[in-house]
Design a binder for these strands. Sequence first.
DNA 1: ACCTGAACACCGTTCAAGT
DNA 2: ACCTGAACACCGTTCAAGT
Lengths: 200, 200
Amino acid sequence: MPTATYHRENLRETLLELAERTVRRSGVESLSLRELAREAKVSHAAPARHFRDRRALLDALALEGFQRLNRAMADAAATSGPFGTRFRAIATDYVSFAVENAALLGLMYAVKHEADASDALVEAGRRSMRVAVELIAEAQSEGDVLPGDPERLALVAFASVHGVAVLATGDLLEGFSVEQATDAAVDVLLSAIAAPDPRA
Amino acid sequence: MPTATYHRENLRETLLELAERTVRRSGVESLSLRELAREAKVSHAAPARHFRDRRALLDALALEGFQRLNRAMADAAATSGPFGTRFRAIATDYVSFAVENAALLGLMYAVKHEADASDALVEAGRRSMRVAVELIAEAQSEGDVLPGDPERLALVAFASVHGVAVLATGDLLEGFSVEQATDAAVDVLLSAIAAPDPRA
DNA sequence: ACCTGAACACCGTTCAAGT
DNA sequence: ACCTGAACACCGTTCAAGT
């Protein structure tokens, strides 16, 4: 008779993985701690040891989401090449993440602005905006982007790309593909903020 | 002893009003049909006569939301004046609606793209996009906007404004006011798509 | 330290029965 | 037609008790 089916190696991670899977498959609202516990083959009270309540689990999920998104954006920003290319790469990555993790993205933004969001979560939420600000400030100093408050331009760029992401996940693209929509937004932004090529 | 505390004038409307109030105050997830029934002083099974299930009530709420939003946008679009002014007015109205009805807007977009959303809901969701397309097509025929697929430009404009709305409700404006963010997005969009003034 | 099992106060949904 | 009250199968959360 094998013993110890009863405490698990790393219940916290197991629960997070299971939770992410069910959020992806059926949305946040159908995520039940008791169901999760059943899937993890653990008593329904066990998750409480690792997450104070349902919200704490959701917060942890959202935090992981922001961390993954930020890593992807930072990687795309870190490539070399002309500003337009790097900007387009970041936008594409952002929208791809949104499409592939639609429910998670919704959770990330929903949970971030709840009154008592953790510092780590708020900080992670701000981080992607800062990637955009730095990219634009840097491009300005290279003469690739018109002068002007980089925070203001980054806000508009971020809003625009995030908007495409939301419309994409909401099935509101009305005939355009995700790539077409992203490219269109990037084209419009670049035509507004890119400095004219001095070699032209 | 007064009789008839027991069937109500218009329970459906009463429930919708109460539901909207609690969604506004405490979010969708804390909306309970039983609680609603208690507030309406009706048995917990009574709401089922008017809404098949919780989702049906949420759908009805979302539909009302789109209708109000679309009315506001159509009104702003119907004013006369130069394209830039009208466009800015619509954007401002959209973002104001989003800020004043943050939870409702979230519900609207969440519910719209659930697999079995009602036709009325999907149609209402598309309508605001069409207002944008028409505005831009009209401005192009007047020579106020550069030529190009009006649906593509409207998509970008819509995404941009919706993005500002989402960032605003998500407390991600980082030091900018809602008005500043909206104006910045409109400025950038106009500088990309507005035709140069022929009188200049 | 980590988990269990029972208990409590909620849910949404359904359905026979009442008016 | 519209509502009630009871019932069913779920929840999240807490807590004494076990190992």
